[in-house]
Design a protein around this nucleic acid. Structure first.
Length: 727
DNA sequence: AGCACGCCGACT
DNA sequence: GTCGGCGTGCTC
């Protein structure tokens, strides 16, 4: 029966002043309005997209504006999804509307509600030999066929590197009966491999455990060293679920790692696999979202924002590399996809598996305490020895581009025996400082509190924080001296020095300056993949994922900065990074070797990590945090504020402290200048709140938000719950 | 957040 | 005389 009286809907909108606003809706009152999007007017002339999150029974609707349109025929968010988002909004202290819009692919927030664009995928139908015969006279078509045959279904846009006019060629292949086209954003796996290799005892034990606990919420920490076969465990955990027609969500920390895992999965998992990450177009992301929600996709491999993908029948969430900081969003709503994955598992009552070779100390603590099932893989599947790590004291050693003579000799030996070498350092450019020898002046950015990095290729100074360029001063602006010199070493300099020292061997540099496009990335990677001896010089971007089979030696140039960091997690991060880069080495046919150059080889950190291992480092680190009352033994939040004038900013934060008042459970530190006090002309300051109970902290923040609207006054500020970085 | 209203300085 | 600065206030 149609109810002709308007009903009142509560709409969550991305507006900073309210969680929901009420509108009247002249339509059939039905409970399944909840979770559907609407277009509503707000204020003078704003059309906004919001989500209906409740209905009200009242005849008092005359003062309410009407909903302009209901944009969805079916709810875009189901009950569990809304529950997750509501709890996340509450936890991270943001509006429901803001959390909803964070969860929703951008495509769905357009008021015009355009239809989701479709995309044509091509899939090889025929056998390779048959196709080769048929395509003897069509080399371009053969190229396309071979690529799709080897790499699985693709869209024409992904084939542009093979040939121009790829979509035409694909259509011709369909006409010849060699290709099939489909209108969806996933691949439908049928010809999967069933390898007959046996799992190691460790893997089997872990797998049995996951299998036994697959029907209810529980968290397993899959703590497995590099090469211990975590991916195989993921695959075999998923197989029985997929066989029962269920769905799974797999999170990876960054786009670069999706293809790898996706490729392993596509060889082995029967079913429909899709990826979801920021590298896809808005339209594609919307499509994957919709199809996962409809149950048309079985497995989604996604980065952070994919955590919110709706599913019809979700049965498991895997979080790969769970320690990775990329899971914490660093702008907008500062949520942690790993933490929310656990919450989602709880809400859906399904298992969550967190995997890492170097679990976050926080996660390990849950494992030690028995909150998480602690599943360890301590042996490598191929029985190969782990790389040998050795420290090299840099004191009193002459260096060439930051690298000692002994190390260069070792590098040369490895190259001479046909191997490849990775030189890792986390600093791009030629040199991180430009210094005046006479007065000690150091070039700094006008807009930020940061030293300028000298880049030799364009002979300019660059601020790595705001990207502002400066030309090189001929005289010291402070004393007029011409004795300007660079200080410290960056990738550019390492590359040049090594090229000079190693003569004919190629030196291939990977950093944001030398590889800024996927195409360049691929080109550089191809040079390495030839397997010829070469030196790879790279930053952080090389630490993750990529396997170089010929790599036998990793040199870590400078790690000492971490020992002076103010971040209480600095050593944890350093250990994770070192183990990760070391993991790049051991995959060669010979045992890998890692050289860490440092001025502090006697530091307790190295002793613990190298003699006792990561687990022991974690136990010690956690013990210190317990004593100091730091997370995870306390609950932290940071209030971050910025303004053009330092004095105004400080005055405002003092006002906030006043408003916070005394709380026996919450320790307020500040106002502290942020480590980088000025960034892009804005001064930055913060208050650190450290609380011994979560509820108290949240109550306090809630009241603070009520008293001081963060978007109203002249000073902008926001709350970062469970911060992982302090810059 | 947007977008209005509103009250004071330098310009055709 | 106005154009435009950004302070304050409101949005179902």
């Amino acid at each position: 029966m149609i109810n002709t009286a308007p009903c009142i809907v509560q709409v969550a909108l991305k507006v900073p002043f309210a969680n929901t606003l009420d509108y009247q809706l002249l339509a059939e009152t039905s409970p399944d309005l909840i979770g559907r999007r609407v277009r509503v007017p707000l204020g003078k002339s704003q059309w906004l997209v919001g989500v209906i999150i409740g209905l009200k029974n009242s005849s008092d609707y005359h003062h309410l504006k009407p909903v302009d349109a209901v944009l969805d025929e079916q709810p875009l968010f189901n009950k569990n999804n809304l529950k997750l988002i509501k709890q996340a909004a509450n936890y991270y202290q943001v509006n429901l509307g803001e959390m909803l819009m964070t969860a929703l692919p951008a495509w769905f927030s357009k008021p015009s509600n355009p239809p989701i664009p479709q995309e044509i995928w091509y899939k090889a139908l025929s056998d390779k030999q048959i196709a080769e015969k048929k395509l003897k006279k069509a080399p371009k078509q053969w190229l396309i066929f071979e690529y799709i045959y080897d790499n699985g279904p693709q869209i024409p846009a992904a084939l542009s590197h093979l040939s121009a006019g790829a979509s035409t060629l694909c259509r011709q292949l369909v006409d010849k009966g060699l290709f099939e086209q489909s209108n969806r954003s996933f691949i439908d796996n049928q010809n999967i491999e069933h390898p007959d290799f046996a799992l190691t005892d460790d893997q089997q034990r872990v797998l049995n455990h996951i299998h036994e606990h697959r029907h209810h919420f529980n968290v397993s920490l899959l703590d497995g060293i590099t090469g211990s076969g975590k991916t195989e465990v993921y695959i075999r955990s998923l197989l029985p679920l997929l066989a029962n027609g269920k769905q799974a969500l797999v999170l990876v920390p960054e786009i670069g790692l999706t293809p790898q895992l996706f490729r392993s999965f596509s060889k082995r998992l029967p079913g429909r696999l899709a990826v979801f990450h920021s590298g896809l177009s808005d339209g594609t992301r919307a499509r994957v979202w919709q199809q996962a929600g409809n149950g048309h996709v079985d497995v989604v491999v996604a980065t952070r924002s994919g955590l919110f993908t709706p599913f019809k029948n979700l049965a498991m969430i895997l979080v790969d590399e769970e320690h990775d900081l990329s899971y914490k969003q660093q702008d907008g709503v500062r949520y942690s996809a790993r933490d929310l994955a656990v919450l989602r598992g709880k809400i859906e009552n399904i298992p969550v598996v967190l995997g890492s070779a170097t679990p976050a100390f926080e996660s390990l603590r849950h494992a030690f305490d028995g909150h998480y099932h602690w599943l360890t893989l301590r042996n490598r599947t191929n029985q190969k020895a782990l790389p040998k790590i050795q420290l090299q004291n840099l004191d009193n050693r002459k260096t060439y581009g930051g690298i000692s003579r002994v190390t260069i000799d070792t590098i040369e030996q490895q190259l001479d025996t046909g191997h490849q070498v990775l030189v890792f350092l986390n600093r791009r450019g030629w040199s991180p400082k430009l210094l005046c020898h006479d007065c000690g002046w150091i070039a700094e950015c006008d807009d930020c509190d940061a030293y300028l990095t000298y880049h030799k290729h364009n002979n300019r100074l660059l601020c790595h924080h705001c990207c502002r360029h400066y030309s090189l001063p001929e005289f010291c602006p402070n004393c007029g001296s011409q004795e300007m010199d660079t200080l410290g070493v960056g990738t550019e300099q390492v590359e040049t020095a090594l090229q000079q020292e190693l003569g004919d061997y190629p030196v291939i540099r990977f950093d944001r300056d030398s590889v800024s496009t996927p195409r360049q990335w691929q080109q550089q990677l191809d040079r390495v993949r030839t397997g010829k001896p070469c030196v790879i010089v790279g930053t952080q971007m090389l630490a993750k994922g990529h396997d170089f089979p010929k790599l036998s030696l990793v040199v870590v140039v400078n790690v000492d900065n971490s020992f002076y960091s103010t971040d209480f997690r600095a050593e944890e991060y350093l250990a994770q990074l070192l183990i990760q880069v070391a993991g790049r080495a051991g995959r060669a046919e010979t045992a890998g070797q890692v050289i860490i150059q440092t001025h502090q080889p006697k530091h307790a950190f190295f002793h613990t990590l190298l003699q006792q291992g990561y687990e022991q480092l974690a136990r010690k680190g956690l013990e210190q945090r317990r004593e100091m009352q730091f997370p995870p033994f306390s609950h932290m939040a940071i209030i971050r504020a910025q303004h053009r004038y330092e004095d105004k900013l400080e005055a405002f934060l003092l006002e906030l402290i006043e408003a916070i008042g005394q709380d026996p459970d919450v320790n307020v530190m500040g106002p502290l200048p942020a480590p980088m006090q000025k960034k892009q002309k804005l001064h930055r300051m913060q208050l650190i709140l450290n609380a011994n109970n979560r509820r108290g902290l949240h109550q306090l923040l809630k009241q603070l938000l009520k008293k001081h609207n963060p978007t109203a006054g002249p000073v902008r500020w926001f709350i970062d719950i469970d911060p992982v970085s302090f810059d």
